[in-house]
Nucleic acid binder design. Structure first.
Lengths: 247, 247
DNA sequence: CGTATCGATATGTCTATACATAAAATCGTG
DNA sequence: CACGATTTTATGTATAGACATATCGATACG
């Protein structure tokens, strides 16, 4: 049973119109950390001239980014990148290094295991890939201020992302590398709760049987699976917070 | 430690402009279930004439609802209420009866405990209320197809919501009653994971120590606390799913 | 009867313009 | 210098109109 029904496989990306292109360009810079929280994004009239369009078009892009809580617009002052306070923004970032950085904590990374192999049945099922091929399996740990923050268990489809073969995941977290090198068109997150087994407990420095928040993230490019990742956060000490306005 | 930093107390609601009023009016009908999933909302030209405004203004309201995944717009056909597939929509609904109904399951409700009392220190802390006053404390259980779906533990500030004194929570779930009778301006959700204690395990028909997904929801009207509720879902069998498009 | 075409229609994007509003910046005065 | 009034400026909302595009439904054709 699931809280929500599934929508089936993700559809392919639609042709980007101008305002969408502006939105995507800005979003990319924010999500990769190129424009960190607090950064002032160009004024509307600057975007107007650089994209050669009217103010309404720029404004539409900025409005959507505001609704997604990625930016904050202040009259007279301009528009600024928000720190990831909201659930949707936190989920969208998907780069734990940037997430920890945005929280003002020091980031630590440790590769636990990394292997390349031909995809077995379980790998294919997890990726949702039909054909068999090569995959990279990665296990690693992220820490904030030297305290374990999350453990990551990831599978990358090497046929869809051949460049991953040359990446050095010993020094760069796979999420960060992917975000900077591989464009994606669809992503799906699923949040659930489990209890820590022996291995997870040891890696996160918590008790066996302690609750953990799980985020499973799948990413596609034009309906082709790129990567599947499971993130385990120590459950009681972590919260995902979302705020709404309404009536 | 928290995945996200807190933004402090919610700010008061801003003056609703015309497009926001349209958005809020439609949103209300969707969130209360008056317009169920699949319902066709009025055409843009109908909204234009009923609100006496231009098409751009109507379109802006509908665009925001689209971005929030509350509606789906199809050329030539019109705009339709979506079933709550997305995380943000699921979180926004906050009415478990409507949620279960939208999933096509039969809804069951059972009041476990309901009492009225003067707020003690713990109650005030939970609501974030400064002054002391009367509160209603409610415990109840929601089920889908006769299987326990979630248990709810709620506190309502009777001074902020005096009408709640006359509501019959034995027959109507408090979430549903509140959604139909009490307007709110800000809400905050927090998602975390815990393990079931003896009481929760018994109510949800799961094992003690089994993981549970927790949603804590606080609701304000113009910065005044209205209600605080904790929902416990059996953890492994429930998932919150969110999808994104991006590049 | 099935299918290809085409027109009607509702949404999707974009422009140019206008005025409102909040807040930073500046100025002027005590 | 302190402090209030004024100006400037970037965003916020709204308009009317234009053209693009997807798609429903009807019509014509094989």
């Amino acid at each position: 049973m699931s809280l929500v029904t599934d929508r089936g496989k993700p559809q392919s990306a639609d042709k980007p119109t101008l305002y969408k292109q502006i939105r995507i360009d800005i979003e990319r810079r924010i999500l990769t950390g190129e424009w960190p929280p607090g950064h002032r994004i160009p004024f509307e009239h600057e975007l107007m001239s650089s994209y050669g369009c009217s103010r309404m078009t720029v404004s539409k892009a900025l409005s959507e980014l505001t609704q997604a809580d990625l930016i904050e617009r202040r009259r007279k002052a301009g528009s600024f990148v928000r720190r990831p306070t909201f659930l949707s923004a936190v989920l969208k970032i998907a780069d734990i290094r940037a997430e920890i950085g945005a929280l003002g904590r020091s980031y630590g990374y440790e590769l636990i295991q990394c292997s390349r192999r031909a995809a077995n049945a379980a790998d294919r099922a997890r990726l949702g890939a039909r054909k068999t091929g090569k995959v990279i399996a990665i296990a690693c740990r992220h820490s904030a201020d030297d305290v374990p923050f999350a453990i990551e268990d990831r599978l990358i489809d090497l046929d869809a992302v051949p460049e991953a073969a040359t990446a050095d995941f010993a020094t760069e977290p796979p999420g960060t590398w992917l975000l900077h090198h591989v464009p994606w068109t669809e992503a799906e997150h699923s949040i659930s709760a489990i209890v820590a087994d022996e291995q997870a407990a040891a890696a996160l420095d918590i008790a066996i049987g302690a609750p953990c928040l799980v985020i499973d993230r799948h990413t596609w490019r034009s309906a082709r699976p790129l990567t599947a990742v499971r993130l385990l956060y120590p459950g009681e000490s972590h919260k995902l917070v979302a705020r709404f306005k309404g009536g």
